[in-house]
Simulated scan of single mutants.
Amino acid sequence: MSSSRKDDHVRLALEQETAKLRSRDFDDVRVVHHALGAVNVDSVSLDVEVADRTWTLPFYINGMTGGSEFTGKINQALAIAAAETGIAMASGSMSAYFKDPSCAPSFTVLREENPHGFLMANLSANASPEQAREAIELIDADALQIHVNAVQEIVMPEGDREFEHWGGHIKAIARAVDVPVVVKEVGFGMTGATVRTLSSLGVAYVDVAGNGGTDFARIESARRADRFSHLNGWGQSAVESLIDARGASRDTGIPLFASGGVRTSLDVLKALALGAKAVGIAGGFLATVREDGPEALIREIRTWEAQLRSMMALVGARNVEALTHTDLVLTGSVREYANARGFDLSHFARRSGKASGGSHE
């Protein structure tokens, strides 16, 4: 049952990718152009520090799959691309391994093909500390993602119906493991209040993982006879979540990752400019590797790297941190969300100090 469900997830996720059922909130983020603000491309560094390691790219392959022979082959292709490009990556949920240990090779292949790369294990908030330690050991992980997915579970025919213990589990796992814990949504977004709660539980990083990418409510609805589609599109986008959570991130010191609906290297730049430490890509990279293999994904990652470096030079950012001083104009549904939630967006448009009569903020 679990193996079949994993295969269904991949098939339905690829169908969504083909149908382009994605949020356009990144299009509501406009980068202000300063004609004399560019710097030399070769002066730009893409390095970011995560978990006491240097990532040479500020974007990564986010958790997708594993748990069956079919998905193991996908993980192998993803790991080959990660090893060749140096990009960090996360496993898909390893909960399947604890139900059926025979599927371990679909996860261990990640480390076998990528022996020196930065790799994140992935478990649900239902996991025990013992399972967390075992998952980390199984793939020699450098960090642990704990995914929270109440919306998916509600729509999933065989999903969980009890969620109040998740906070206690996350706290226990964070105390028990010796690698940083990243808590991520699976595509429904985060708020500042959630980030503050996670800070109190000992979490090291938060992936706001907004809607607009792979919609697991839609996937699980497609697996039901009654098509429980009312929650399709539920939640906040990555852009809205970054705006909502930025104050909490600053106050608690917890860095934010962002994922969900990232289509291009320009979306990566916008997410970084909104305060993300790094940006995760899942569905788009999955489609590339399934259609054309790891060599195509290697070319795509290298293309994104070159494009991101060039665009950072264009906006005068010599490093990722400098992108947070890039002037942005936020419009459309993103502005509507921010206004309704009480967030002032005006400062984003004059952060560089190049606004007429403005000052650096």
Rank of each mutant, 00 (worst) to 15 (best):
A83R: 14
D344H: 05
R24N: 12
V289S: 01
G280P: 06
D327C: 09
L272A: 02
G212Q: 00
N114A: 12
F188M: 06
K73G: 12
G92I: 11
E84W: 11
E185S: 00
L57A: 09
A88K: 01
Q307Y: 06
H34S: 06
I219W: 05
A77I: 03
A225F: 15
A127F: 00
C103Q: 15
V279Q: 04
P58S: 08
G187F: 04
L323R: 08
K20C: 11
N122Q: 08
W166C: 03
E49H: 12
C103K: 02
H169C: 05
A245W: 02
R111H: 11
Q145P: 11
A271P: 11
A132V: 01
L266V: 14
A172N: 02
H360K: 09
I87M: 14
D160T: 02
A127N: 09
P105N: 03
A282L: 03
R175H: 10
I301F: 03
L256P: 01
L138Q: 02
G192T: 10
G192K: 09
E158T: 12
E17G: 02
G63C: 07
D142T: 09
E240C: 08
H34I: 06
P115Y: 13
D244V: 07
S45D: 11
D28K: 03
P115I: 08
L286S: 08
E185P: 00
A225C: 04
F285S: 13
V320W: 10
S124T: 14
V109R: 01
H325K: 12
V268E: 06
R318Y: 11
G260F: 14
V48K: 00
G167K: 01
V10I: 15
N319Q: 07
H9Q: 13
R263L: 15
T331D: 12
S95V: 13
V177G: 00
A83D: 13
R218N: 14
L266W: 05
V320Y: 06
G293Q: 03
G63K: 01
T264N: 03
V48R: 01
I61V: 14
Q76H: 12
V39Y: 06
L308A: 08
P157E: 12
K99L: 05
A217C: 04
V39N: 08
H325I: 04
L36W: 13
L46I: 14
R161Q: 14
N149I: 15
A174H: 00
G67R: 00
P157V: 15
N339E: 15
P180C: 08
D100S: 14
E162M: 12
V329G: 03
G260V: 04
K6N: 07
R227S: 13
S91K: 00
W304D: 06
E164S: 04
A174T: 03
H230S: 14
S249W: 03
E49W: 12
T194D: 06
D7H: 13
T71G: 07
V195S: 05
S237W: 02
R196T: 06
R175Q: 14
R175Y: 10
V279P: 00
L308R: 15
